[in-house]
Design a protein around this nucleic acid. Structure first.
Lengths: 161, 161
DNA sequence: TCATGTAGGTTGCGAATCACTACTTATCCT
DNA sequence: AGGATAAGTAGTGATTCGCAACCTACATGA
């Protein structure tokens, strides 16, 4: 299978491109969401999302390839394949929730199920950027810094790529 | 032009689907990232990302449609079009950073520019989910709650988020 | 003023991907 | 064995992507 299209990755040393390489295709995030909601089996994903079977098969395979889901056949019934989130997959939760909160806020809101802290049943905070000591940061309070600058704190250079 | 493919949205009252409707296509996030980095013009996006011109035109138009970018012609030179982030677009920053941090962490890491707090030049925290009072929440501490449940609770204690 | 350059697109076309439906394979149940 | 079920594959159009060439409005400057 020769890909003609180039990896997004090569244009940037940026993790965003790598993330999109793994999760950027249509349906990937919806599948992930379903997985977070406890769905485990092919037919469950298929009927929940209404996605075409071949596409679903492709996406699941890709997510497994990228280590986001793990594929196991059940011992009790070897027809049944379990797709389970790995640690890497679970670590996508903040990104997914951030995206979802944005959608709720700006696109006709009113999302039915809401994430709550199971301790007190209160909704979680909006995802935000925070300084090392926990202050919430605004866009104006941020800048890009290159790795070299972090290492050599003595000098200051002025650029953001 | 009739779209045969259905909106992701219809399958879920979920903001995630709406968000993907606006940002889920290839290149959209990379364009957004470039916009956050100060790029404003068609040719700048094109040469920075190496994206095909027609695709870029389509994406920019779509992002404008969705109110994520704003398109303005400069008075000083009316050939020049400025694409600027709107408030809605800027509000995608947490989601983008979360995605990027995930990519940095799990996919061959080492992302060159890093976001820092401009006040003390220290890198920002990893994006995480937090309870209403600021505790960082683990996946095990979360559950989904439906709107009706929240309303029922609200009957005794008068509040809605 | 008219040639020339520039910014921001559009068009045409082949390749790749998506989506819908039907078919297949392996396994379980009785 | 016969039928049902889970998880895919295969075939077929429609849609989108990616590349290069082309187009148009505006700006510049000799």
């Amino acid at each position: 299978m020769g890909k003609l299209r180039e990896d997004l990755r090569q244009y940037e040393g940026c993790g965003l491109a790598s993330a999109l390489e793994a999760m950027g295709e249509r349906w990937s995030f919806m599948i992930l969401r379903a997985a977070f909601n406890g769905l485990k089996h092919f037919e469950e994903f298929q009927s929940e999302l209404g996605i075409a079977r071949n596409i679903l098969a492709g996406r699941l395979a890709r997510l497994v390839e990228h280590g986001i889901l793990e594929r196991t056949a059940l011992d009790s019934d070897r027809r049944k394949i379990v797709y389970a989130l790995t640690a890497k997959g679970m670590d996508l939760l903040p990104a997914m929730v951030a995206l979802r909160q944005w959608g709720d806020k700006w696109c006709q809101g009113a999302s039915t199920p809401v994430l709550v802290d199971s301790r007190d049943e209160r909704p979680i905070r909006p995802v935000a950027l925070q300084s090392h000591d926990g202050r919430t940061l605004d866009l104006a309070e941020l800048r890009w810094k290159h790795a070299e600058e972090l290492l050599e704190l003595g000098r200051s250079s002025e650029n953001a790529a």
